[in-house]
C-alpha cells in the first residue's frame, strides 16, 4: 500500500512560565492509504497534540518546532495559512473529542453541514443541501433533521452528524480524537461500526486517537503507543495482540480486562507520567519501568525499525536482554 501521510521527527513545543514544554518529541510514523492507524497513550502524552499539529490546529503558544509532515507527497509544514486552508476538510477532516461540543449550538445542522462544502467547492445552495441530505442518509439520520438545532438531537446522533460532516468532501484522512468517549457503550458500538462500514465503502484513512487500548485493538490496522511526548512503539494489531514489546505497552494492556481468555487481576502502571518541562534523563519511562537498567537512566533508547514496526527500548537495543528476540524475528521474515 502507498503511504498517505508521512511524519518525520515531528517536535511540538510550547513556552510555559516554567520553561519549554516538549509536548511532542521526535515522533515519526506513516499512515497508508485506506489504513486505520491508532495512537494510544495516557492523557497528556501528546497524542492529541500530534493530531492538532498535523491538522494545523495548535493553539498558541504551542507550535511545531521541527520535523516534516507530508500528505500525498506534499510537504505540509511549509504551506502558508491560505494554502493550508485549501487542504482543510477536502483532504484532512477531523472529528473531535466530545460529541456535545463539536457542533455550534445556535446554528442549524444544515448550515453547519453545507458551510464546509461551500467553503471549498463551487456549488449551488440547492446542490449543497442535496449533498447534505445524502450525507445524513449515510449515517442513518433522517434528512428532516437538517432543520434541527444540535440540542434537539441525542448525543449519539450529534456525533453521527459530525462524522457525516467529516465525510462531506471525501477527504483522504479523517482524524478522530476520542470520537466516542462521551457516549454510552451501546451508542459507542453503533458509531464504531458505522465508522468501519463507511471506511470500507469510501476507503479513506483514519488516524484514530484514544486511551482505550482494547477498542483500538478491535478496529485499528496498526497502533502507535505514545509516552511523554514520544512514540515508543508502533506495531501491527495482530502482533500487539500476541505480544506487546515495550514495557509501557505491556502495562497499558494489563490495565484493561483481556478481550478473550480467562479473567485475571488488572494491573495498572505505578507512578505518574513525567513532567514535560524537565523529563527524566535517558528513557523517559525508566522511573516507572519494571525492567529498568542502568543504561535506561543514562541514554535515550534509539528508535529501531523492523518489519513489525518501531520499538524504542533498551531491552531491544544491541546488547539488551531481548535483542535476540528482535534479531530472530527480523531474520525469520527476511
Amino acid at each position: 500500500m502507498v503511504n498517505l501521510l508521512e511524519i518525520n521527527n515531528l517536535c511540538i513545543d510550547y513556552d510555559s512560565p516554567r520553561g519549554k514544554v516538549k509536548a511532542v518529541h521526535n515522533v515519526s510514523f506513516t499512515i497508508k492509504k485506506g489504513e486505520i492507524f491508532g495512537l494510544v497513550g495516557e492523557s497528556g502524552c501528546g497524542k492529541s497534540t500530534t493530531a492538532f499539529g498535523i491538522s494545523r490546529l495548535l493553539r498558541p503558544p504551542a507550535q511545531i518546532s521541527a520535523g516534516s509532515i507530508t500528505l500525498n507527497g506534499q510537504e505540509l509544514t511549509h504551506l502558508s495559512e491560505a494554502e493550508f486552508d485549501k487542504l482543510r476538510w477536502s483532504h484532512i477532516s477531523i472529528v473531535l473529542q466530545s460529541a456535545m461540543n463539536n457542533l455550534n449550538p445556535v446554528i442549524k445542522i444544515q448550515e453547519q453541514l453545507i458551510d464546509a462544502i461551500l467553503a471549498h467547492k463551487a456549488m449551488s445552495a440547492e446542490e449543497a443541501i442535496n449533498h447534505a441530505k445524502y450525507l445524513l442518509r449515510l449515517v442513518d439520520i433522517n434528512e428532516e433533521r437538517l432543520a434541527n438545532f444540535p440540542h434537539e438531537l441525542s448525543g449519539g446522533m450529534r456525533q453521527r452528524v459530525v462524522i457525516a460532516m467529516a465525510l462531506a468532501l471525501q477527504p483522504d484522512l479523517i482524524i478522530m480524537d476520542e470520537p466516542t468517549t462521551a457516549l454510552d457503550v451501546v451508542v459507542q458500538n453503533g458509531i464504531i461500526h458505522k465508522i468501519l462500514e463507511l471506511q470500507k465503502d469510501f476507503g479513506f484513512s483514519i488516524l484514530f486517537i484514544t486511551h482505550d487500548l482494547p477498542l483500538m485493538l478491535e478496529i485499528c490496522d496498526r497502533i502507535g503507543v505514545m509516552y511523554a511526548g514520544e512514540l515508543v512503539e508502533v506495531t501491527k494489531r495482530e502482533d500487539l495482540m500476541e505480544q506487546a514489546r515495550h514495557p509501557y505497552t505491556q502495562g497499558l494492556l494489563e490495565s484493561f480486562p483481556p478481550l478473550k481468555g480467562e479473567k485475571r487481576r488488572l494491573k495498572g502502571i505505578s507512578g505518574h507520567p513525567p513532567d514535560l518541562v524537565t523529563p527524566p534523563d535517558g528513557c523517559s519511562f525508566h522511573p516507572r519501568c519494571p525492567y529498568a537498567m542502568l543504561q535506561c537512566k543514562q541514554k535515550e533508547p534509539e528508535k529501531l525499525h523492523d518489519n513489525k514496526g518501531i520499538i524504542a527500548c533498551h531491552l531491544y537495543q544491541e546488547g539488551g536482554h531481548r535483542f535476540e528476540q528482535l534479531q530472530t524475528t527480523s531474520e525469520g521474515t527476511k
Partner: peptide, 8 residues
C-alpha cells in the same frame, strides 16, 4: 476548532 478545521 472544528470550524477552523473545516477551512471556513
Amino acid at each position: 476548532l472544528l470550524a477552523k478545521a473545516k477551512g471556513l
